[in-house]
Design a protein around this nucleic acid. Sequence first.
DNA 1: AGACTGACGGTCT
DNA 2: GAGACCGCCAGTC
Length: 105
Amino acid sequence: MNSYTRIYEVVSQIPSGKVATYGQIAELCGLVGQARLVGYALFQVDVPTSPVPWHRVINAKGEISHSPLRRGADYLQRSLLEAEGIEFDQSSKVSLAKYKWRVEH
DNA sequence: AGACTGACGGTCT
DNA sequence: GAGACCGCCAGTC
């Protein structure tokens, strides 16, 4: 089983209305400190038809990561999150203290 | 084989 | 609070 497959499984466990950070996903996959790998893995999966809720994964700042390669995907991500009841502040950031996914408790 | 790049994160200044 | 640096792994040239 590839590390990527594991990443997809963990991401799929994120409940609706919650978000997780790249570092958090990496940690849950036993890939501590390899947040980049998570982002890299999700890059190959940003297909709308994918069963993986990639839109619930954001960076440690609570912001949606932008990239020239994504073009309008970031906008779509925000829309999907808002559709789940997640709010963005003036800086387009999500309150991690409020919406961050917790595996324990 | 060596260098570069990328949806990141933590630390230091 | 913002910007600069370094470390991580995988894929590509």
